[in-house]
């Protein structure tokens, strides 16, 4: 699928690109992502970059905006695109955030450019009458994405930076318990790096409330054919499977994702190496 670049702008440490892509805009649900091909025809970079969608607008038949960090491999090429250039992007991909039918109190946690994935969700939640409180953070002020918009939209917006350059000194998860308490939060939504999602899920569990966490980085096909993006997830039937975060995610219930086992194949996962597996230490192709 091809889109046409409408705008590209720098937002502190990140770039935000708006692309005319009516087919994606039309079907988008908050939590879904776009998979972008970088480098153009004959590119040496063969994997797509899955990125959270920041905004969807009806202009020009439908536009989508996504945000990427300057250190994303291929960011240089992407940032050099100009208005009216065409861009190869596929989407919307993945399963969206489940949105409660009835009004509830929602705490939305984002770190780095992961925050970008939360604003369309906030919009949808508020349309349903839910209360939204934001917690945004990053290592430093220039890496906190969307602080202004969060302040405008949220009932409250709590900011945290590791160097103290904006808001509270610390991590988003340091301030999250207080926000859940003050807002009487019923559910937590989060988008950010894996380590942050893990802590968010743990905090939600302490409060005995559900969490919906969105995996931020997906490098691969984005469509479910390359098997790069698997995570150990506990299914409805209690069985752990290695599931693809691009098709079965990127949104998971926090308590179903086995954060401690990410990067491993848990011994009790379906099809984990056992008596029948290949000889350890040898690779199959």
């Amino acid at each position: 699928m091809t889109g046409t670049v409408l705008t590209i702008r720098q937002v502190d440490a990140y770039h935000a690109m708006t692309v005319v892509a009516p087919a994606i805009a039309e079907r988008f649900r908050p939590g879904q992502f776009v998979a972008i091909s970088v480098g153009g025809t004959g590119s040496p970079m063969l994997m797509r970059r899955g990125l959270p969608i920041h905004d969807v607008k009806p202009d020009y038949g439908g536009t989508v905006e996504f945000v990427f960090p300057a250190d994303l491999p291929g960011a240089g090429w992407l940032a050099e695109r100009r208005v009216r250039d065409s861009l190869d992007l596929v989407g919307p991909l993945g399963r969206p955030f489940p949105v409660p039918r009835d009004p509830v109190h929602c705490v939305l946690v984002g770190s780095g450019y992961g925050s970008a994935g939360l604003f369309m969700l906030a919009d949808r939640l508020q349309q349903r009458g839910s209360r939204v409180d934001f917690v945004l953070g990053a290592t430093s002020a220039d890496r906190v994405f969307g602080a202004l918009r969060a302040r405008r939209m949220g009932q409250t917006a709590t900011l945290a930076t590791e160097d103290g350059s904006l808001g509270v000194r610390g991590r988003v998860t340091d301030v999250l318990p207080q926000v859940i308490e003050d807002a009487r939060g019923d559910v937590v939504y989060a988008c950010g790096p894996m380590a942050m999602l893990r802590t968010v899920a743990a905090v939600a569990t302490e409060f005995a409330i559900p969490s919906q966490v969105a995996v931020r980085e997906i490098v691969g096909c984005g469509t479910g054919v390359c098997m790069s993006c698997v995570l150990p997830v506990i299914g409805e039937d209690g069985i752990t499977r290695m599931v693809r975060s691009c098709v079965e995610g990127p949104v998971f219930r926090g308590e179903r994702l086995r954060f401690d086992d990410v990067g491993t194949i848990p011994f009790d996962a379906l099809g984990a190496p056992g008596a029948r597996g290949p000889v350890e230490g040898f690779r199959e192709r």
Binding site: M242, I265, G271
Partner: peptide
């Protein structure tokens, strides 16, 4: 023959 969970991640590199 049997289901396989595959290898740990990261499994692919560009």
């Amino acid at each position: 023959l049997a289901p396989r969970a595959g290898r740990p991640t990261p499994r692919t590199a560009e």
